[in-house]
Simulated assay, not measured.
Amino acid sequence: MEAYSVVASGLIDQQVPTLTLQFPIGVNVFGDAPLEDFVVGEVPFYLSEWFSAVVLLAWIIVPVFLGYLRFRTADLG
């Protein structure tokens, strides 16, 4: 859900709230503070926006590919 929030926020230039099961919808536990305030040193690559897009694409592509592999030789008839 965080990957979707980051990618969507980047596309529309507005903050899209993250949907989580731990906090009520729309509650941002970090407030409006930038990520750099919570990380000592340089921000790791896996917390960058481009990596969020990679994670989101993986969540879309991998299940479809695994389903294709599973059912390509299945006899459904």
Results as ranks from 00 to 15, higher is better:
residue 4 Y to K: 15
residue 4 Y to W: 15
residue 5 S to Q: 14
residue 5 S to C: 15
residue 5 S to T: 15
residue 6 V to A: 12
residue 6 V to S: 11
residue 7 V to D: 01
residue 7 V to A: 14
residue 9 S to M: 09
residue 10 G to V: 14
residue 10 G to E: 14
residue 13 D to K: 15
residue 13 D to Q: 15
residue 14 Q to S: 14
residue 15 Q to C: 12
residue 15 Q to W: 13
residue 15 Q to K: 14
residue 15 Q to M: 10
residue 16 V to E: 07
residue 18 T to V: 10
residue 18 T to Y: 09
residue 18 T to A: 09
residue 19 L to I: 12
residue 20 T to K: 03
residue 20 T to L: 03
residue 21 L to E: 10
residue 21 L to F: 11
residue 23 F to W: 14
residue 24 P to D: 00
residue 24 P to A: 01
residue 25 I to P: 14
residue 25 I to T: 12
residue 25 I to F: 14
residue 25 I to A: 14
residue 26 G to N: 00
residue 26 G to P: 03
residue 26 G to C: 01
residue 27 V to A: 07
residue 27 V to R: 09
residue 27 V to H: 08
residue 27 V to T: 06
residue 28 N to G: 04
residue 28 N to E: 10
residue 29 V to S: 09
residue 29 V to M: 07
residue 29 V to D: 04
residue 29 V to H: 03
residue 30 F to V: 13
residue 31 G to E: 00
residue 32 D to I: 00
residue 35 L to Q: 05
residue 35 L to C: 14
residue 35 L to A: 08
residue 36 E to S: 13
residue 37 D to E: 12
residue 37 D to M: 06
residue 37 D to H: 08
residue 38 F to V: 00
residue 38 F to L: 00
residue 39 V to R: 00
residue 39 V to E: 03
residue 40 V to W: 04
residue 42 E to V: 05
residue 43 V to N: 05
residue 44 P to C: 03
residue 46 Y to I: 02
residue 47 L to G: 04
residue 47 L to Q: 01
residue 49 E to Y: 06
residue 50 W to D: 10
residue 50 W to M: 08
residue 50 W to Q: 04
residue 51 F to R: 06
residue 51 F to N: 08
residue 52 S to A: 14
residue 52 S to H: 08
residue 55 V to G: 05
residue 55 V to N: 10
residue 57 L to W: 12
residue 57 L to S: 12
residue 57 L to R: 02
residue 58 A to H: 10
residue 59 W to C: 09
residue 60 I to E: 11
residue 60 I to K: 01
residue 61 I to Q: 10
residue 62 V to K: 07
residue 64 V to D: 06
residue 64 V to Q: 04
residue 64 V to Y: 05
residue 65 F to E: 09
residue 65 F to Q: 06
residue 66 L to G: 06
residue 66 L to I: 09
residue 66 L to T: 11
residue 67 G to C: 11
residue 67 G to S: 11
residue 70 R to V: 08
residue 72 R to P: 08
